[in-house]
Design a protein around this nucleic acid. Structure first.
Length: 427
RNA sequence: GGCGCCUUGGCCGAGUGGUUAGGCAGCGGCCUGCAAAGCCGUUUACAGCGGUUCGAAUCCGCUAGGCGCCUCCA
């Protein structure tokens, strides 16, 4: 299997099974209900793990929770810890409802402060960082490779942050920030006084705390390439650690169409999306585009995803053909080639229309969609109405039959007649 | 100003030199008491201009348009 690697800008072959393939995907900053775009790295990470395991890999996934951040302080002045805790619970609930299971580890920044401090101390000792008035900064000039991952030219980088008199070089970034009592209500003791970790250091510290100095795949949104991941590479490789072998960056979601837009920007939360479209449609939506490409989240694209889901689901009301397993190769080839889910989805549709339901079931399971194969059983009163309608049709009382079909529909069930009986399908 | 990505038929989206991708929607038909589901058929695209080639959606150049990032956004 091969994956596109941002660092080398090429497809990189994974080691053969059983690997291991240790993956670290950057998770959310917990200050509000996560929006649907935040679900993409989660989904991609879980799917990759699922596919790798199905192919005999020893695959693990770490997904971190950033619960120390300015946004949290801004969103809940004086009560940021409570907000972070609540938003973490929301995130676990919402991603859990996607039905893909959970990552192997979900480390939190707040629970990793000792490791972070240890990491910073090593950087200071080796000359790659320096303390200044309670802050600690990474010395970018000490790492010649800086900019390699993102392709940024250091001399051209715009300075968005307030220039700090404490920095030796404007490119230097904070590893540790001294506490500012007016705006921040959480702090930890450190060799440099009270304060809190910077953003980038947590990932280096947590990834290496769990995996050691080297692992296979580091994922996250494309918007994290610079500065977040560039800084992670700098921190870890400055200490001589290989760190991630492959950098897997997923494309952004785009929000179009006015209908779903809210007064402030047109975003929708994972929760709202699942509630509105169902988790299966959300997953099919992510399947329709390559994980690296941008994807439009809109009324139209979601409607199409829901329609595709129905097509796949309806296949299971059809007659199955023999258990021909040869078709699996096309599906596997699509996913092994940079995890090409649109191509794999086309194979799924091929199986659906040719009635190869065993293969279809197996393929859907890779994406957590085994439930598509399950037909909900109608409650007794619905079945009773259906039987009544069968009788009416036998008696050729079509008026009554049509009335009963209406009744079933208003109860949420569609009755589909067939030669040998009928199907009851939830609407 | 810098780094990078993208542009395929009504919509979504595969395709990296020469054979129908696929789906959704539409239209026609079969099936059905009527529907639904399913099946069959159907609208033949590759931003524009130029170049390489026997041959380009696929390679090169230019132009136009869109997008991401540039110190704390997945």
């Amino acid at each position: 299997m091969r994956l596109y690697d941002t660092y080398t800008r090429s497809l990189v072959e994974l080691p053969p099974p059983p690997g291991p393939v240790r993956m670290y995907f950057c998770g959310p900053t917990v200050y509000a209900r996560a929006h649907i775009g935040n679900a993409r790295p989660f989904v991609v990470g879980m799917w990759l793990r699922s596919w790798l395991r199905a192919n005999g890999y020893d695959a693990t996934l770490v997904h971190n929770i950033t619960d120390i951040n300015d946004k949290i302080y801004d969103a809940a002045p004086g009560a940021s810890a409570e907000l972070a805790e609540r938003a973490t619970a929301w995130y676990l609930e919402d991603t859990g409802d996607l039905g893909l299971g959970m990552p192997d580890h979900l480390p939190k920044a707040t629970e990793s402060v000792p490791q972070i401090i240890g990491f910073i101390e090593e950087l200071i000792e080796s000359g790659h960082a320096y303390a200044a008035d309670g802050d600690v900064y990474f010395r970018v000039a000490s790492f010649p490779e800086y900019g390699r991952l993102s392709g940024q030219r250091p001399d051209q980088v715009e300075q968005g942050e307030e220039p700090s008199a404490l920095k030796e070089d404007p490119r230097d970034f904070a590893l540790w920030k001294a506490n500012k009592p007016k705006t921040e209500d959480t702090w930890w003791n450190s060799p440099w006084g009270r304060g809190r970790p910077g953003w980038h250091i947590e990932c280096s510290a947590m990834a290496e705390d769990i995996y050691g100095p080297a692992f296979e795949v580091h994922g996250g949104g494309l918007d994290l390439v610079f500065p977040h991941h560039e800084n992670e590479v700098a921190q870890s490789r400055a200490l001589g650690h290989p760190f991630a072998q492959i950098w897997a960056h997923n494309g952004m979601l785009r929000f179009t169409g006015e209908k779903m837009s809210k007064s402030v920007g047109n975003v929708e939360t994972i929760r709202e999306s699942i509630d509105r479209w169902g988790r299966e449609a959300v997953l099919v939506f992510f399947l329709t585009a390559s994980w690296r490409k941008p994807i439009d989240y809109s009324e139209e694209t979601m409607t199409q995803a829901a329609a595709r889901l129905d097509t796949l689901r309806n296949a299971f009301t059809l007659q199955a053909t023999d258990g021909d397993e040869r078709g699996w190769d096309a599906f596997a080839a699509a996913l092994d080639d940079d995890f090409d889910t649109p191509a794999a989805l086309a194979v799924l549709h091929d199986w659906a229309s040719s009635g190869r339901l065993d293969l279809l079931r197996r393929g859907l399971a890779v994406f957590g969609l085994e439930s598509v194969a399950e037909r909900a059983a109608a409650p007794d009163e619905i079945v009773a109405l259906a039987e009544e309608r069968v009788t009416a049709r036998v008696e050729r009382d079509f008026e009554r039959a049509d009335r009963l079909r209406e009744e079933l529909a208003s109860a949420g069930w569609q009755m589909r007649d067939r030669q040998d009986g009928y199907d009851l399908v939830p609407l």
